[in-house]
């Protein structure tokens, strides 16, 4: 019974594929599999992520949504015993092609993590880190400007402009997370991946981040993993539902939440499991 559902589900996403490509897909995953040692963590996922939109991944914990997210900037490379197969195309290039340089890829695909992880450096140095290593700023003034712009975009500038030299770890949790977002956008990426960015934050900080995500959508393609369906409904235009390592259903957020095609999705949305 369960199996037949899954089989059905595998065809569901591909139905929307044609239209997605037409909409200008930034990233196209085709038959992506991930193995951690013996564990088959992600099974044959095919999914498009459209440019200039927020796509959210939802599903119960351990469903593979974070694993898939980490495929998109090859963060899985840093984990021992992790193998990725299938293709992930970004602007028509396979990012797992041996010719693709992972450093250059990550400069294009930024990432924000579940727990805020500012470096044990000053606020300024945290933001300046990316531009510095990539050599994006020609001089100090340009770097200063980049830092200020990024903080501005992340909505943090007003709160920290008087203490740019104090350590980033001294900020509150929500501020730290916005600092990490500012750090990610300082290198001006094309895509920003967010792995449950609000799970460690209080509701007010969460609201601020969500607002920020909405603003950032103008300039960046955003993928967000979230365990909160409300959040997915609030911030994203498209939603993908994962279950047990498989992509069950993907579609416009409104459609997924109001009229899910798949029973599993429906069960999850209505809170029957999770």
């Amino acid at each position: 019974m369960e199996n037949s559902h899954v089989r059905d589900a595998m065809h569901t996403p591909t139905e929307t594929e044609g239209s997605a490509a037409a909409m200008g897909a930034k990233i196209q995953a085709q038959g992506t599999n991930v193995h951690y040692g013996d564990k088959h963590a992600l099974k044959d996922v095919t999914l498009d992520i459209r440019a200039g939109e927020v796509t959210s991944f939802i599903g119960p914990s351990g469903c593979g949504k974070s694993t898939f997210l980490r495929c998109l900037n090859r963060m899985n490379d840093t984990i021992d015993g992790c193998r990725v197969s299938g293709t992930v195309m970004m602007d028509g290039e396979d990012i797992y092609d041996p010719k693709i340089d992972v450093v250059q890829l990550r400069a294009r695909v930024g990432m924000v993590f579940q727990k805020p992880n500012p470096f044990p450096k000053s606020i300024y140095d945290n933001i300046a880190y990316g531009p510095r290593i990539h050599g994006l700023a020609a001089n100090k003034d340009e770097l200063d400007e980049m830092v200020v712009t990024s903080l501005e975009k992340a909505g943090l500038l007003a709160e920290v402009k008087d203490r740019m030299d104090s350590p980033g770890t001294g900020l509150s949790g929500g501020q730290q997370q916005r600092l990490c977002i500012a750090r990610a956008i300082a290198i001006n990426p094309e895509v920003i991946l967010m792995d449950e960015p609000c799970s460690a934050l209080d509701p007010i900080a969460t609201a601020k981040i969500e607002e920020l995500i909405d603003e950032l959508r103008e300039n960046y393609t955003i993928v967000i993993v979230t365990h909160s369906m409300q959040q997915a409904a609030r911030v994203s235009q498209r939603t993908a539902f994962f279950h047990l390592g498989e992509l069950i259903e993907v579609g416009d957020t409104e459609q997924i939440f109001t009229n899910p095609r798949h029973k599993l999705t429906q069960g999850y949305i209505t809170g029957r499991f999770g």
Binding site: V103, F113, N117, G130, A184
Partner: peptide, 17 residues
Amino acid sequence: PQAMRDGAYALGATKSE
């Protein structure tokens, strides 16, 4: 913490950086 490494790698830092 691994989070520190992840943060740097995600910004496109090389291992030595």
